[in-house]
């Protein structure tokens, strides 16, 4: 594997609509060589469409795509980019070994088969028929197919979706090894924890746009929002909005829900100020809520500015 000096990925003004739905609505993204980047977002945020366009599987309506300084087709032909897709069956009527060996033979500069098998932990599956694999096993074969060209850039669309906890752990361990050798990795997920433990950088997508982009620690702070629920007779929404750390308040009779990126501060102030608040509950907000809170807060800041 020889490394290219150009950015691994450059997306400029990428747009794609399906009928009336704007799946991707102007995405700009540059990923440098060796970065491990998570594309985080709720379902429908445009992750898969963005990755499909990046991989040349779907043409964008407009925008520019550069992979390793050239076209994605060129990168594919040279085996410089490997991808794990979310869907799609494997070729039936063949064994795992035959399939991997054949796909490897198509590559100009393949990774040695032993290495592919080791990274994807296919040792026990080699003689199995491709149509007799479980979801998690199929995913490991797809991972192996992404590695046969010894790629410099690895793109994965929700790679762990079909895996159980143990499979996930060993999968990410393999990814860390691959990243340690200087490979660039871009993967999509809707689990904040996955993005958090693996990536150096998180790109948060919402409604087809980049809602936030930064080092993992920074994004985690905004994405890891909590919801605080409690009962408060005579609750007043406007008054509650003034609590430190309150990003959004909903009041239904005595039932209050407050969204917060800093639930500790919020709770201290809330319990201090409202002595008669009871049944307090703190939970992790779904990612969709967090993204919503983030975009809402940004709009508020923009209005204030």
């Amino acid at each position: 594997m020889t490394l290219t000096t150009a950015p691994a990925i450059e997306l400029r003004g990428l747009r794609k609509s399906f009928g009336q739905v704007r799946a991707v609505d102007g995405i700009d993204l540059t990923v440098g060589g060796g970065e491990v980047v998570a594309l985080l977002g709720p379902n429908g945020a445009g992750k898969t469409t963005t990755l499909d366009m990046l991989l040349g599987l779907q043409p964008p309506d407009s925008g520019e795509i550069k992979v390793l300084g050239g076209s994605v087709q060129d990168a594919i032909r040279r085996g410089k980019i490997g991808a794990v897709l979310q869907e799609g069956e494997l070729l039936p009527g063949t064994t795992v070994r035959e399939l991997i060996a054949t796909m490897s033979a198509l590559q100009p500069d393949p990774m040695p088969l032993d290495e592919v098998i080791e990274h994807a932990e296919l040792g026990g599956l080699l003689q199995r028929k491709t149509d007799k694999l479980s979801g998690g096993e199929t995913q490991r074969v797809r991972f192996a197919l992404a590695l046969v060209g010894d790629p410099e850039l690895l793109v994965m669309d929700e790679p762990t979706a079909a895996m159980d906890v143990t499979a996930r752990r060993s999968f990410w361990a393999a990814i860390r090894n691959l990243a340690a050798a200087g490979r660039t990795i871009l993967f999509s997920t809707h689990y904040l924890e996955e993005a958090d433990t693996i990536a150096d950088r998180i790109v948060l997508l919402a409604a087809g746009r980049v809602a936030a982009d930064g080092p993992t620690t920074e994004i985690r702070a905004v994405a890891a929002a909590r919801v605080v629920r409690f009962t408060l007779p005579g609750a007043d929404r406007d008054e509650l909005m003034l609590l430190p750390g309150a990003d959004g308040v909903e009041v239904h009779g005595a039932a209050v829900t407050i969204r917060s990126a800093d639930s500790d501060t919020l709770l201290r102030a809330m319990l201090e100020r409202y002595r008669d608040a009871r049944d307090v509950e703190v939970a992790t907000a779904p990612l969709a809520d967090a993204v919503f809170a983030l975009t809402e807060r940004r709009e508020r800041d923009e209005v204030a500015a």
């Binding site: 991989l55 897709l85 799609g88 069956e89 796909m103 100009p108 197919l145 060209g149």
Partner: peptide
């Protein structure tokens, strides 16, 4: 979906 996978090979 196999042809999609093939589209990612040389």
């Amino acid at each position: 979906g196999w042809t999609r996978q093939l589209a990612l090979s040389p």
